[in-house]
């Protein structure tokens, strides 16, 4: 058993788990999707040696530091560590949110939407940004700021829809 097994939500009984975005996203538009429960693994070491499983997505921040988005973080951690790359389960650490629209993106960050994925300033905090097809984006950010991020995103959406604030 790994000394870090207490890090992994996947080792908890499933009914014990909740998402940090849950409350904020009640009644939110469907274009916003909560990615918080998805597997996220932080990697340290020679990223070239990480073995990827099907569907795994590797985001390189530096040659020795990366994030792996994966359906099975436990297996990914075992595989990485077996290859000599240190791996940490960050599933619980990072909230994740999928959203749509380049204008929304531009109202949240100064990052170049053409140069993703990357880590940088987002809604006055730090996040990892990923671009999917078209104008679909994902952001991963510290879960303790999850409610804040949802509040900001909903507020910006309200502004784009011509409203004053999502609360007003």
């Amino acid at each position: 058993m790994s000394a870090l097994y207490f890090m992994s939500p996947a080792r908890c009984t499933p009914e014990t788990l909740a998402s940090p975005l849950e409350r904020g996203l009640v009644g939110a538009p469907e274009s916003l999707r909560d990615l918080s429960p998805d597997g996220k693994v932080e990697l340290r070491g020679d990223l070239a040696r990480v073995g990827l499983a099907e569907g795994d997505e590797l985001i390189r921040l530096t040659p020795r530091r990366g994030f792996l988005l994966t359906g099975d973080p436990l297996a990914a951690i075992d595989r990485s560590r077996a290859n000599g790359v240190l791996a940490y389960d960050m599933t619980g650490a990072l909230g994740g949110l999928a959203f749509e629209g380049e204008t929304l993106f531009r109202r949240l960050t100064d990052l170049d939407p053409g140069a993703l994925p990357t880590a940088g300033g987002f809604a006055r905090i730090s996040a990892i940004l990923v671009r999917d097809e078209g104008e679909r984006f994902r952001a991963y950010f510290p879960q303790e700021l999850g409610h804040y991020v949802v509040e900001v995103v909903l507020d910006v959406l309200a502004g784009l829809a011509g409203g004053r604030s999502h609360r007003a």
């Binding site: 207490f6 939500p9 080792r11 014990t16 788990l17 940090p20 918080s36 619980g92 650490a93």
Partner: peptide, 26 residues
């Protein structure tokens, strides 16, 4: 209770105590 924890037996408040560290989602 079905949640894996790192338990630290420390006592900042001076009584018998356990500090449980575990996935935030639980």
């Amino acid at each position: 209770a079905g949640v894996p924890c790192l338990a630290l037996r420390i006592g900042f408040v001076g009584e018998l105590g356990y500090e449980l560290h575990f996935p935030s989602s639980a």
